[in-house]
């Protein structure tokens, strides 16, 4: 998958409005079939709980978080809608990457920073997002996008605070991106 990097055209991705309409249709399909929106961090939570249940079953019984989760999911953490949906996401993204010739191992970063710095910031960002998505009951797709799709007040609040904080902090991190 070696793509020459010299002439970068603006047409590598589909039109964003077309993408938005398609994404909206996927969201409607999810609501029509299952009465719920899309999501991502819920699947990550399922994976974490499943890991803890296997690796440290004693801890899963003692710690309140895992006890409550397991009590409310008698079928086990991995038998969840979002887990199956997330497996689909991985397949779908891979298909798109294959069709548009974007499959390539690389660390994407601004030329002004090193790969190492990019990875350190990616891990920090991941920790923050993982923590925040649990506290806020859902991430950008689960709470903000799906919530807005069904006009939920909570969805608008989380959208406003996710993007508001990111805008507010953007200036401090400009070197990482521009």
């Amino acid at each position: 998958m070696s793509e020459s990097r010299k002439p970068i055209k603006k047409t590598r991705y589909i039109n964003p409005y077309l993408g938005g309409v398609l994404l909206g249709l996927v969201l409607i399909a999810a609501n029509f079939v299952s009465g719920r929106g899309l999501g991502a961090s819920g699947a990550a939570k399922s994976a974490v709980v499943a890991t803890v249940n296997t690796v440290a079953p004693g801890h899963a019984e003692n710690a309140q978080f895992f006890r409550e989760y397991n009590a409310s999911h008698p079928q086990g953490p991995m038998k969840a809608w979002l887990v199956f949906q997330m497996l689909g996401v991985i397949v779908g993204a891979f298909l798109s990457g294959a069709i548009f010739n974007r499959l390539k191992f690389k660390v994407e970063h601004s030329p002004k920073i090193t790969s190492k710095r990019r990875i350190i910031f990616a891990v920090i960002g991941g920790i923050l997002f993982g923590f925040g998505s649990q506290l806020g009951r859902g991430c950008t797709s689960g709470s903000a996008l799906s919530g807005m799709g069904v006009l939920s007040l909570g969805g608008f609040i989380s959208m406003a605070f996710i993007f508001g904080t990111a805008f507010a902090l953007a200036w401090f991190f400009r070197k990482n991106w521009i």
Binding site: F121, A122, V123, I124, G125, G126, I127, L128, F129, G130, F131, G132, S133, Q134, L135, G136, R137, C139, T140, S143, A144, I157, S158, M159, A160, F161, I162, F163, G164, T165, A166, F167, A168, L169, A170, F173, N176, W177
Partner: peptide
């Protein structure tokens, strides 16, 4: 939670 996620977004991308 939203504010923490926003900070995560701008650091992690």
């Amino acid at each position: 939670g939203g504010a923490i996620m926003g900070a995560g977004f701008i650091t992690g991308g």
